[in-house]
Amino acid sequence: MTLELPGSVRIAPRALRQAVRAVAAETLGAPPSEVRAEVLERGGSLALRIAGPMRRTHQPLLVAAEDARRHLLERAGAITGAALAGCELRITACIAHEAPRAR
């Protein structure tokens, strides 16, 4: 049973941007402080513009970046509940895997 209550819910743009930034940092394997995220309104829907470094994988960079872009769009939409129309991803640097440390 759903109870209808008067009022509305509004998510501040900053909160939406911070959620998207956290998802982007997790997806790219980068520190959140190095990731920039924008949520843009485009024709009644929202789009993402993300820039930041990406942790290297064994895939070619372009393939890994496209996989990250698709995952980002899906995950950010699921977390925020927003209908996202697209995602522009700009990789600013590659982060090397850390070598295991001896104990």
Rank of each mutant, 00 (worst) to 15 (best):
M1R: 12
L3A: 15
E4G: 13
P6V: 06
P6L: 04
G7F: 03
R10D: 10
A12M: 14
A15D: 11
A15R: 06
L16D: 03
Q18L: 14
V20L: 06
A22Q: 10
V23T: 12
A24W: 04
A24F: 01
A25C: 07
A25S: 09
G29E: 00
A30N: 06
P31E: 13
P31T: 12
P32A: 07
P32T: 07
V35L: 05
R36Q: 15
E38F: 13
L40K: 14
L40T: 14
E41L: 11
E41A: 12
G43A: 12
G44L: 06
S45V: 12
L46S: 06
L48K: 05
L48G: 03
L48V: 13
G52Y: 02
P53K: 07
P53R: 04
P53D: 06
M54Q: 03
M54S: 02
R55H: 09
T57W: 00
P60F: 04
L61S: 05
L62P: 01
L62I: 13
V63E: 05
A65L: 02
A65W: 01
E66T: 06
A68I: 02
R69D: 01
R69P: 00
H71C: 01
L73P: 01
L73F: 00
R75W: 07
G81Y: 11
G81F: 09
A82Y: 07
L84N: 04
A85S: 15
G86L: 08
G86M: 08
C87L: 09
E88G: 10
E88T: 13
I91S: 04
I91K: 02
T92R: 04
A93E: 14
C94A: 12
C94H: 12
I95N: 00
A96G: 09
A96N: 11
A99T: 13
P100K: 10
A102Y: 10
R103H: 08
R103E: 11
R103Q: 09
